[in-house]
């Protein structure tokens, strides 16, 4: 479904990501793991069209996405839950969610998708009229995921959904991701929480210093000595 070929991207003089190639197949949850500063966020931003590619290509179902800009990437069916959530703090939860419906399909099915989002995150239904900036971190993460779902994307990308959240909240967010995936949505997940990410994904790529150093089925990686030593502290 999504294919990255030799992607290079960076900021100013800094090359953050060098020749990254990866693939996400329809229906999968693919995790992109690695330590802080490895280039995970940069990779997602490059896919989302928020950062121009220096080299390489990004294709969604055979269609080139790079160089189109973020609005076109969203229209093509890629929704992005960015690091730090990036909600609209002085607007209500309902408004934040509805603003996510920027695609033709999202607009056409707005009430149905909203119902599904409230079904996944009942807390948001209660807080619908509350300003997004006044929510707790976990609730804000729910809004960010819900907002992305409102676009009715074919690929959902999440950047560090567990960052700064209590373990119990992280657990429920990951359970919801699994439920969303069972609905048929393909997910590309960036996580620092390697154990969680490997447990919930089908396959994973390990990013180190801007390049992919290891990839494979998540279950295999979970048992891999190098992963255990570097990321799981065993």
């Amino acid at each position: 479904m999504l294919r990255l070929e030799g992607v290079e991207a960076g900021y100013g003089d800094v090359v953050a990501v060098r020749s990254v190639s990866l693939e996400v197949r329809a229906g999968e949850i693919v995790a992109l793991i690695g330590s802080n500063g490895a280039g995970k966020t940069t990779t997602l931003r490059a896919i989302a069209g928020l950062l121009p590619l220096r080299r390489g290509s990004v294709e969604l179902e055979g269609r080139r996405l790079n160089g189109l800009g973020s609005a076109a990437v969203v229209r093509a069916g890629v929704a992005h839950v960015p690091e730090g959530r990036q909600l609209f703090p002085t607007m209500t939860v309902g408004e934040n969610l509805e603003l996510g419906a920027r695609t033709a399909e999202g607009r056409a099915y707005r009430p149905q998708t909203l119902a599904r989002v409230f079904d996944l995150f009942p807390r948001l239904a209660e807080r619908r009229a509350q300003l997004a900036g006044t929510l707790s971190g976990g609730e804000q993460q729910m809004v960010a995921i819900g907002r992305a779902l409102m676009a009715r994307p074919r690929l959902l990308m999440l950047d560090e959904p567990s960052l700064g959240l209590a373990p119990v909240v992280v657990g429920s967010i990951f359970a919801n991701l699994a439920a969303i995936n069972r609905d048929g949505l393909t997910i590309l997940l960036v996580e620092q929480n390697v154990l969680r990410a490997l447990k919930c994904s089908h396959r994973a790529y390990v990013l180190e210093n801007g390049t992919i150093t290891l990839s494979g089925a998540s279950a295999t990686l979970l048992a891999d000595e190098r992963i255990k030593r570097a990321y799981l502290g065993r």
């Binding site: 989302a48 928020l50 973020s70 609005a71 076109a72 990437v73 969203v74 229209r75 992005h80 960015p82 990036q86 909600l87 609209f88 703090p89 002085t90 607007m91 408004e95 509805e98 603003l99 996510g100 920027r102 695609t103 907002r147 676009a151």
Partner: peptide, 20 residues
């Protein structure tokens, strides 16, 4: 109108949701 407010609230967030 909501998009205008959203862009005022969070420029990057507006880019993320695919607003022009």
């Amino acid at each position: 109108g909501r998009l205008i407010r959203a862009s005022a609230d969070n420029h990057y967030g507006a880019l993320v949701i695919g607003a022009d």
